[in-house]
Simulated scan of single mutants.
Amino acid sequence: MIHLQDVTTTFGEGENKFTAVKNVNLDIAQGSIHGIIGFSGAGKSTLLRNINLLQRPTSGKVLVEGIDLMSLNEEELRAQRHQIGMIFQHFNLLNNRTAVQNVELNLKFQGVPKRERRQRALEALSVVDLSDKASAYPGQLSGGQKQRISIARALVTEPKILLCDEPTSAVDPRTTASVLQYLSDINANLGITTIIVTHEMNVIKAIADKVSVMEDGSVVEEFELRSLKEPGFEPQTSIGRYLISDEISLQRRNKTNELATSVFA
């Protein structure tokens, strides 16, 4: 479904040059839920944006259903992007538009007639159980409802792929479970290939089929989530082992002044 070949993305030039994604090769199966996890600055979000070329790679190939997006002109790329929905961390809703108007936006940009786009927007809201909030403005909605509106907005174009950039980091734990349930149901019922970027391993454990671990711009390890249930299995990399741990470990010091010196030095 999705194949990234030697994808590299750099920013700046000369002494200010920074490589955010380094020679990444990645295969994502059709209909799967694929997690990409790593610490802040690992290159996760840049790699996600490489998939739909919102951030164009410096080099490499991005193939979606066998089509190299890097080889397309602007018009051809826009047409391909209609098949790729995206959910953002901070919702990106327009406060002066109602829920249904926010969901309609992508269809409006595509030139879909008003009556048709309203019908499709209402259908998308129904998928996330927010038909009763169609006339509400973002300021009248909870964080979880806003994220569900953004899911509906991504679904309204009937995409084959759904890119999710930290979709639960702006909501509380209870709402996280609700958002993930909707994404899981959408994947199961509509067969949409879903890629989720997060730094939260509990999110990956709850929903993903496979996970790619990123560190310093590179994919350093991949494994199936079902492997975590196998006796004796553990990730091969230290970053992978750390990320699957549910524990928070603090360094204990013997003297109060040692801690103070460490913190305030």
Score class of each variant (00 low, 15 high):
residue 255 K to S: 00
residue 232 G to D: 12
residue 216 D to S: 11
residue 94 L to M: 15
residue 258 E to A: 04
residue 48 L to Q: 06
residue 80 Q to M: 12
residue 11 F to R: 14
residue 57 P to G: 05
residue 132 D to C: 01
residue 66 G to L: 02
residue 1 M to C: 01
residue 230 E to C: 05
residue 91 F to W: 05
residue 40 S to A: 04
residue 201 M to S: 04
residue 34 H to P: 01
residue 206 A to G: 09
residue 14 G to I: 06
residue 59 S to E: 15
residue 180 L to G: 02
residue 262 S to A: 13
residue 3 H to G: 01
residue 237 T to I: 06
residue 261 T to I: 00
residue 84 I to E: 02
residue 126 S to H: 07
residue 195 I to L: 13
residue 65 E to M: 00
residue 178 S to M: 15
residue 134 A to S: 10
residue 103 V to C: 13
residue 98 T to F: 03
residue 27 D to V: 03
residue 154 A to I: 10
residue 218 S to P: 08
residue 11 F to H: 09
residue 82 H to C: 06
residue 77 L to D: 00
residue 34 H to C: 07
residue 229 K to V: 04
residue 174 R to K: 13
residue 86 M to S: 03
residue 48 L to W: 11
residue 249 S to W: 07
residue 148 R to L: 05
residue 240 G to A: 10
residue 18 F to G: 00
residue 141 L to M: 15
residue 140 Q to L: 03
residue 8 T to G: 06
residue 231 P to D: 14
residue 99 A to V: 15
residue 252 R to V: 07
residue 118 R to K: 13
residue 19 T to V: 12
residue 123 E to A: 13
residue 5 Q to C: 03
residue 123 E to N: 13
residue 120 R to W: 08
residue 1 M to G: 02
residue 30 Q to C: 07
residue 172 D to N: 08
residue 228 L to S: 11
residue 116 E to P: 00
residue 60 G to T: 06
residue 35 G to F: 06
residue 108 K to F: 07
residue 49 R to S: 01
residue 214 M to A: 13
residue 116 E to G: 02
residue 176 T to F: 08
residue 233 F to G: 05
residue 153 R to G: 11
residue 77 L to T: 00
residue 116 E to L: 12
residue 228 L to C: 10
residue 117 R to S: 08
residue 147 Q to N: 14
residue 262 S to G: 01
residue 247 E to G: 03
residue 36 I to D: 00
residue 193 T to Y: 12
residue 256 T to M: 14
